[in-house]
């Protein structure tokens, strides 16, 4: 596929924003500034960025617990995101939801459940609404290889297929469900794509460390969906760089294998491409790193300085 420089730069910037956000999340958590648990999306960025490069105004999104940075790509400000993550009033839910619930409906984000999979049907519901109103948009729903084995995923796929709903199921196959390797959890090599056939859906498997490969596969599938032909499944194969949660020392896997996979770095690949094509130079890249980092530091400082909600506000938002 031929790409404009502008498109390649947009993909690179989104990829870099995800990478640096996820790194910042890990670093900030290590400083003890984030309560609860975080699940780093490092290594999986291309799955989200490549897929979402096909998005159009009016589409709906059901995100995943990895790559929280996606919320920022879709419109949530860094200030709002870090405030929610750091449990402050200025977060989207005032710190009542936390890191797994960084979401704003005004950006057509449907929210996310930390149960993994119990929210998978939301995209089908949003797609129903689109169908109901005769709107030519679609819904994206992201889930992992571990979640791929849960019943709600299969029910949601069947429902979307039988109702021809405009939904793209995106399986971020990072090869581990907590500590369990994908081969121990699924009887098929591709826990996302291989299940599509059972519901009469087309599917693709993409190299999830290559943002352009993901984009091209997503483009073919979203063209199918946007043509009114029903749902599809995209599986992106990558590798989870960190443990399931921060603090997981990953004794269940071989460090040498992890290091090999980390060389297949989606951000580095894009940098090489942009440098080779002379679309950007190293100084400009360095400048982007610095600028994005500065933005995040400012957002974190804002969140730190923001107040938390008070006990008097604990019931707010429970009922309309």
């Amino acid at each position: 596929m031929e790409y404009s420089n502008e498109f390649l730069m947009k993909l690179y910037e989104e990829l870099l924003r995800c990478r640096l956000f996820e790194k910042k999340l890990v670093d900030t958590y290590a400083l003890g500034k984030i309560p609860g648990h975080i699940h780093s999306g490092l290594g999986g960025e291309a799955c989200y960025v490549g897929t979402l490069a096909t998005r159009q105004q009016g589409d709906y999104f059901k995100n995943s617990h990895r790559c929280i940075a996606v919320a920022n790509l879709l419109g949530v400000s860094l200030e709002t995101a870090f405030s929610e993550i750091m449990a402050k009033r200025t977060g989207n839910a005032g710190g009542r939801g936390g890191v797994n619930h960084v979401s704003q409906l005004k950006y057509n984000m449907l929210g996310f459940s930390a149960t993994l999979a119990c929210d998978i049907g939301l995209a089908g519901g949003a797609a129903m609404r689109l169908q109901y109103d005769g709107i030519d948009n679609m819904a994206y729903t992201f889930y992992g290889d571990g979640t791929a084995n849960r019943g709600p995923v299969h029910e949601a796929m069947n429902l979307a297929a039988v109702w021809k709903l405009p939904v793209l199921f995106v399986c971020d196959n990072n090869q581990f469900g907590i500590s369990t390797h994908v081969s121990q959890g699924s009887s098929v090599p591709n826990p996302g794509a291989d299940r599509a056939g059972a519901y009469g859906m087309p599917s693709e498997v993409a190299d999830g460390t290559d943002v352009l490969a993901v984009y091209e596969a997503a483009k073919r599938l979203t063209d199918h969906i946007r043509a009114g032909k029903g749902p599809a499944v995209l599986e992106c194969k990558n590798y989870r760089w960190r443990g399931h949660f921060e603090g997981d020392q990953t004794p269940y896997r071989d460090k040498a294998v992890t290091e090999e996979w980390m060389k297949k770095d989606s951000v580095a690949k894009m940098e090489k491409l942009l440098l080779d094509k002379k679309i950007i130079d190293q100084a400009a890249i360095d400048n982007m790193y610095q600028q994005i980092d500065d933005e995040m530091e400012r957002a974190i400082a804002f969140a730190e300085a923001s107040p938390a909600i008070t006990p008097e506000e604990i019931y707010d938002n429970l009922y309309v």
Binding site: L110, G121, G125, R129, Y132, P152
Partner: peptide
């Protein structure tokens, strides 16, 4: 699971 999930998605998007 699917249609309760779909009801939720439809409700939050305006139905």
């Amino acid at each position: 699971m699917a249609f309760i999930g779909a009801a939720m998605g439809a409700a939050e998007t305006g139905l």
